[in-house]
Structure formats: C-alpha cells, structure tokens
Amino acid sequence: MNTQDSMNKEKKFVSQLLTDKPSALQQSASVCREKEISSPLPELLGFAALAAATVSLASCKKDQEALFEVNNVMLYDNSADKSKLKSNEQYVSILYTNLFQTALSNNTVFELGKTLLSLGDQELAREVLISNFFNDAGVQMPTADEMNADIDAFIVETYKRFFVRLPSEAEKTWVKNFIERNAYMTPELVYFSFAMSNEYMYY
C-alpha cells in the first residue's frame, strides 16, 4: 500500500467517524492503542488522519484577494518646473481668482487683455492693475493681526495661493524675518509682491 492510498483510506475512515459516530472516537482510540502493541500502522493512520483533517479544513478557507492602494498626498509644483510665460489673459484671470477667490467673466478677461496690451511697460501695467484690485473691498486676505498671529502658516498659505508650491525653509525664514522687521508689511503688500514677482508670471 502506498502512502497516498493509506491517506485516502484513513481520511475516509476519520470522516465517517466524525460524522456518523463521534462517540466511537474513544473506542477507535482504544483500538489503536491495542494495535500499537502489535503494529506501527495505527500510529501512521492517526497521523494521516490529522493531516487529512488539516488539509480538509484548510481547503475550506476563502481565498483572500490582494488589494493595492496609495495614500492621498498633496503635490505642489516646483518653481523649476515653471517655464511657460503666462499670457496677459492668463495672468489677469489667475490673479483675479487668487485675490478675490472667484472667477472673472470671459468678457472682462478679454477687455483686460486689450488694456494691458496698450501699455509698453508691462510691469508697470501689472502694478497699476493690482493697485486697482486692492482698492476693491472684495479681495480675500487675512488681516495683519491674523498674519502676525501665525506668520509661518501665512507664508505657507501665500506660497500655495500664488506659487502653487510650498516654500523652502530658506524662503520661509527670509520672508518671516522680513515681515517681522518691517512694521508696514501687511498681507496686502505681501500679496502685492507675490503678484508682481517673476515666478508668478510663469506656470
């Protein structure tokens, strides 16, 4: 008798025992003990029964499907990736959205594009435009007290709002020191600087 036949026979035996006559287990064990004296076969059968039971139980488990996921992480641009110059229309549209937290109409964007085109010094034109925007009460920005209460957070939020990136530690340190040392530096002037910066002209 080969091992496989022996296992099958034992498996059948144990299964029958488990289902039909659970109480016979004790008797069966006694029989086995009697047979131990005369032959090693019962020991093998017991082992085989145990293995068969294990296999049987294991075969009933449901397969687990592997699930691969990624964690949500906020990504920001690096300034080095900004190489395309904004058009006048893009600039005014983004600027307005950044300052007022609402979008400009297409007609206004078109008109503003023409207005900027009619001036030779574009830097000056942007400066005048921004100063006009700041004369509007609708600009969304923190107060000076709010800025000074948590300058670090203000700087991070300003970089994210205008540059769509996080400041480096060096940038954060410099801007923080500059704000702290200049009594006249308000959120409005900080926003003004960012809106006038060269980096803001690129995307």
Binding site: L124, W174, E199, M201
Partner: peptide, 26 residues
C-alpha cells in the same frame, strides 16, 4: 519700498532656477 524689496527676493530665488524676465527699465 518693502514691497519691491520682497519682489526682488522672490525674483532672485526664481532666477536661480534659470528663468529671468527682463523689464523695460523704467
């Protein structure tokens, strides 16, 4: 004056990344 000074800082940081934006020079 401080607004321009901060702009200069921001521009210098950006120009380190290879981009410069010339102006008319008024």
């Amino acid at each position: 004056a401080p607004m321009y000074k901060m702009k200069v800082f921001l521009d210098n940081n950006f120009s380190q990344n290879g981009a410069t934006l010339h102006a008319l020079g008024n």
